[in-house]
Design a protein around this nucleic acid. Structure first.
Lengths: 330, 330
DNA sequence: CTGTTAGCGCCTTCAT
DNA sequence: ATGAAGGCGCTAACAG
C-alpha cells in the first residue's frame, strides 16, 4: 500500500497518463481487443495511479450492478443460512455481490424489498417466499424461486420433496416400524413442502403400511394441544416422519411429556438435513436436502436469465437419508 | 398495478408533467422544503407516472449507496446468522441494504471483499474477522469490528467475554461442582474469546475453586486426542465450561466415548446462546451473548460514522446465563 | 422558494 | 484499432 490518494482517480487520469483516449481504457477494462503496445501503456498507467473502476458509475451507465438479491424468510435458520452460504459463495466466484433480505414471511416486507432492490438495479432475485408474491414480480426482472411454483414465467429449484417423503417412510419401515405417522403444518399458501407428506402417504398406501397424518394449521403457536388430541386416537405408532427437522425436535420434546422416548418407543426422521456447521453432525435422523447443489442451480439459473439465455423451467434435485441418533442402526 | 412501463420514467418526466423544474422534484425526493401547492402537483405526477428514483444514479452522483457490507467468517453458523439477521433488520428499518460477505476466515478473501465493496461505494463495513485485516482498512472507510480489537481508529462491539467466563464458573459452582475445567481453542490471531477462559480462571482463583484449563491449537481437526490426553491427568472433574456451544456439543460427544455422561457425571456450560430459531430452546446450557443488542450497537456505530459523527471507541454488552439441559436445576 | 445548468465516471456510437 | 463526444439520471450550486 502506497500513499492513500485523497481524490479518486478516474479513467480520464489513466488515459491522460497513458497518452490514449478514455475509450481505449474503457475497452480494456471490458476486455475488448486492444493493440498490445497500447495495452501495456494503459496497464502501466493503471498500476502507477492505482486506478480502480467505479462500480457505481458502471452500474449507473449500464443498468447492471453485478448484484443479486436473496429474499428469504429469515437467515436465522440453519436451512436458510446454509443455503445462503452456498449462494453467496457461488455468486462471489463469478464476481457478483449479494443483497441479503429477510422478509420474515411478511408479504408486505417482501413487496417492499422487491421495490427496493428494483430501484437499486439488481440484476436478479432469488427468492424463498412462502407468501403470495408473484404478482409483484415484473416479468422483466429475472427471478428464480426456491421450493415454490409460481406462474409459467418463473423458474424454480426444489428438492425432491415427494421422493423424500417416500424415502422417509421406507427407511422407517426398513427399521422395523409397524405404524407410521406424519406430522406437518399446513397453510393457505401452497408450497412444495406439502409434497413431503404426500410422498409419505403414497408410499404407505402402496406398501400397505399402517399410517396416520397430522397436519397442523400454521402459524403453529402450540404444538402440545394438537399432538395430545392426536395421541388419544393414535397412541400406538412407532415411527414418526416430520415435515422438517425443527418440527421433529419440537415433537420429541412434546412426546417426552407424554412418556414417549425416542429410540425406546419410536424412531423419528426429519427433513432438511439441519446441522449448525459444515463439520458437525445432523441434529436428528433426516432426509437431507442438497442445499449446495440447490444454491448452485439457483445461481446458474439466475445468471442465465440475466444474460438473456433461455433456461429450464424447473430443477428438481435428489435427496438422501442420513441417520443421526433418532433411528436405529441397521 | 397498472400497465408496466417499457422505458423507465425519470425525474425529467415528472418535472415536465408537474410543470416544475427537475431541481424541485429532486428536492422533494430528498425532503427539502417545498411550497405546498408545488408538492401536491409533483406528488400527483409521481403517482401518475409511477415514478421511482433511480438508486444507482443517486449512488453514482452522491457516492453513497445506502449499503453496508457485513463481512463474517460464514453465515452458516447460528451465531453469525442470528447476528446477521439482526443487523439486516436494523439496517433495513433505516433504509439501508446489506451486502453479505462470507470470508471463510481467509485473509485473502477478506481483502478481496474489501476491495470489491470499496469499489461499489458501500457506505461502511461491519466485520467479524479472525484474521489480521486492519492494514487493509483505509481510515476513510467507516469500519466497525465485532469481537476484535484493532487499532485506535476502529470502534468495536463485543459481549462481556471476561464476565461471561466468571459467570460460567460461578453457575457451575452454585450447582455443586467441585472440580472445574475449561476447554477452548487458541490461535495466533488474538481475539476477545480468549477472555472467556481468562474470566473463568480469575473467578476460580478468587474463590479458591479447583480447576484446570485445556487450550487446543486451532484449527481443530481432532478433538478426541487432546481430550484423551487431558483426561489422563484430570479425570475427576464435574463441571465443564467450553469456549462456545458448538465446542460444548463436540466435547459431550467425546466424553461419551470415555464413559462420561452429561448431568450424571458432570455439568456443562457453553457460550454464545446458540439456538436454531428464535422460538426454540438453546442447544446446551449457555452464556448468552446479546446478539440483537450487539447488532443494533454495531449498526448505530457504523451509521454514526457514515454521518461523520464522533463515536465511542468500544461497546461492551452484558451476557447472561440460560439453563438448557446440561446443568442441574436449582 | 424555484428553474436552470454543470457535471459525476463511464460506455458507446461515430468517425477516423 | 482508436480518439472524440454525447449522455445515462440525478444532485447541488447559482441565479433569480
Amino acid at each position: 500500500m502506497e500513499g492513500s490518494q485523497q481524490m479518486s482517480v478516474t479513467m480520464k487520469d489513466v488515459a491522460a497518463l497513458a497518452g490514449v483516449g478514455v475509450g481505449t481504457v474503457s475497452r480494456m477494462i471490458n476486455g475488448v481487443a486492444v493493440k498490445d503496445v497500447t495495452r501495456r501503456k494503459v496497464e502501466a498507467a493503471i498500476k502507477a495511479l492505482d486506478y480502480e473502476p467505479d462500480a457505481a458509475a458502471r452500474a449507473f451507465k449500464t443498468n447492471h450492478s453485478q448484484t443479486i438479491a436473496l429474499i428469504l424468510p429469515t437467515i436465522w435458520h440453519p436451512f436458510f443460512s446454509e443455503f445462503a452460504y452456498h449462494v453467496e459463495e457461488s455468486l462471489s466466484e463469478r464476481g457478483y455481490k449479494l443483497y441479503l433480505c429477510n422478509a420474515d414471511g411478511d408479504p408486505e416486507k417482501e413487496h417492499d424489498y422487491i421495490q427496493m432492490v428494483k430501484q437499486s438495479k439488481v440484476d436478479g432475485i432469488i427468492g424463498i417466499t412462502y407468501s403470495d408474491i408473484d404478482k409483484f414480480i415484473s416479468s422483466n426482472l429475472p427471478f428464480v424461486s426456491i421450493d415454490r411454483h409460481f406462474s409459467e414465467e418463473v423458474s424454480y429449484v426444489t428438492a425432491d420433496n415427494f421422493g423424500g417423503g417416500e424415502l422417509a417412510a421406507e427407511e422407517l419401515q426398513k427399521r422395523g416400524c409397524q405404524k407410521l405417522i406424519y406430522i406437518g403444518g399446513i397453510n393457505p399458501y401452497p408450497n412444495e413442502t406439502t409434497l413431503r407428506g404426500d410422498g409419505f402417504e403414497a408410499y404407505c398406501r402402496a406398501k400397505g403400511i399402517d399410517f396416520d397424518i397430522l397436519r397442523i394449521p400454521e402459524p403453529i403457536s402450540d404444538l402440545t394441544t394438537p399432538i395430545a388430541d392426536f395421541l388419544t386416537k393414535n397412541a400406538d405408532f412407532d415411527g414418526v416422519f416430520c415435515v422438517n427437522d425443527a418440527m421433529g425436535m419440537d415433537v420429541m420434546t412434546v412426546f417426552k411429556k407424554f412418556g414417549k422416548e425416542v429410540l425406546r418407543d419410536y424412531q423419528l426422521i426429519g427433513f432438511d438435513g439441519t446441522r449448525i456447521d459444515s463439520s458437525r453432525n445432523y441434529l436428528v435422523s433426516t432426509i437431507v436436502q442438497p442445499k449446495k447443489e440447490m444454491a448452485e442451480a439457483a445461481v446458474a439459473l439466475i445468471l442465465k436469465k440475466v444474460a438473456g439465455i433461455e433456461t429450464e423451467k424447473r430443477v428438481i434435485l435428489p435427496v438422501f437419508f442420513e441417520s443421526a441418533g433418532t433411528t436405529k442402526d441397521m
